[in-house]
Nucleic acid binder design. Structure first.
Lengths: 204, 204
DNA sequence: AAGTGCATGTAAGATGTTACATGATTAT
DNA sequence: ATAATCATGTAACATCTTACATGCACTT
């Protein structure tokens, strides 16, 4: 559902080939949506079938056809409809939190390792998001530049602030999660042998 | 992947029928995982096939067969393996944040409505999670009671604190999100006409 | 007699992941 | 030459959502 609008939103800034979109969405820890290449290409075809995007064949080299997709007026309309529609908070489905809920079933030291790994991972993400946020505020990302060039200069600050604000949340959220993990480590250490009843392996 | 371990984790506290598990996981805004009934029953069969859970047929009334599932030693072992394994932060895929990223394409008033709806929704969730958290700290949920009855009383506080801590994060996270949405409303209001270029409908 | 809750299932479709396959162009 | 990057696709599979179907037990 949402990937389609993510694509439309990006194409609204500028036209792109499937490959460029793929690079945007693949392994994009620093972006708000991710999708593998195998989802992008079929979806572009589908959107073209619905008239929301338009592909233009470009000859490159001998017979290499490289398709440049751009958003249509219908596509922009569909995107705006979606942007206007309120949605409920998506149901939480967080494997790491689920894991934490049952940490009393393993040794505190083992749970501690898992949490330490989470914290490490979060630090990396935070750094990436912070960097991206800074670039947005400086209006220094390729896509934002393209977008702003179509807009009234009086709005530039507001638009950049709005986009950066999304990343502010990602950063805040990851920071709060890291603090949560630290606190969880403290609770685990607080005392207590683990798994007294029905142990997985003979007590040692 | 994770649903299977969520089921095992619940069954570790006490045996249950598919129906009871369904009620646990369906529309469970107050829990950390959710799944519709159509996922539960087939998965239970699969887990039984793998020997991770064991179903016991119970006669009820005339010929009504009601199956009570319990976790096996293999199931407990598989669950512990999973609990010990570090995982990377799941890729963020948040439709609401995606929406916010393109709010510059619609009227500020329209975006404001969407954000107001989000905040309302978050308040409801926060209230539910807070209630659940309180009950966990008071060791007053049916499932936690069953679980604690199998464990050393000296660990009870630590276990309850650990579980409650998971909900603390959900609450903190939702609060931070609500504050973020309020801030976003302020940015939207900060000035600026919207969509100057390529308007969806004639400017008014 | 009809409705609600208990209880278990199937089917169709959307979405997402992992892996494989292919060929052209550009850089070393 | 060969490796990396550009570029586009398919296949198989797991997961998740929505909807429908069925029948018993208990209440009103």
């Amino acid at each position: 559902m949402s990937l389609q609008y993510a694509i439309l939103g990006v194409l609204d800034a500028r036209s792109m080939s499937g490959y460029e979109l793929t690079r945007m969405f693949e392994s994009s820890a620093r972006w708000v949506w991710s999708a593998p290449q195998s989802q992008i290409y079929p979806l572009l075809r589908k959107l073209e079938g619905e008239g929301l995007v338009q592909g233009e064949d470009q000859v490159r080299g001998e017979k290499m056809r490289r398709v440049q997709y751009s958003i249509t007026e219908d596509g922009r309309h569909a995107l705006r409809e979606w942007l206007r529609s309120p949605m409920d908070t998506p149901t939480i489905r967080d494997p790491q939190l689920l894991q934490a809920l049952f940490f009393d079933m393993i040794e505190p030291a083992e749970a501690d390792d898992v949490l330490a790994h989470q914290i490490e991972d979060l630090r990396t993400l935070i750094a990436q998001w912070e960097a991206h946020r800074e670039r947005l505020l400086a209006k220094d990302t390729p896509l934002l530049k393209e977008r702003l060039s179509q807009r009234d200069p009086a709005d530039h600050d507001r638009i950049a602030a709005l986009k950066a604000h999304v990343f502010t949340h990602l950063i805040e959220s990851a920071r709060s999660r890291a603090e949560w993990a630290e606190q969880a480590r403290r609770i685990l250490a607080s005392s207590g042998s683990p798994v007294t009843a029905h142990a997985d392996r003979p007590a040692h």
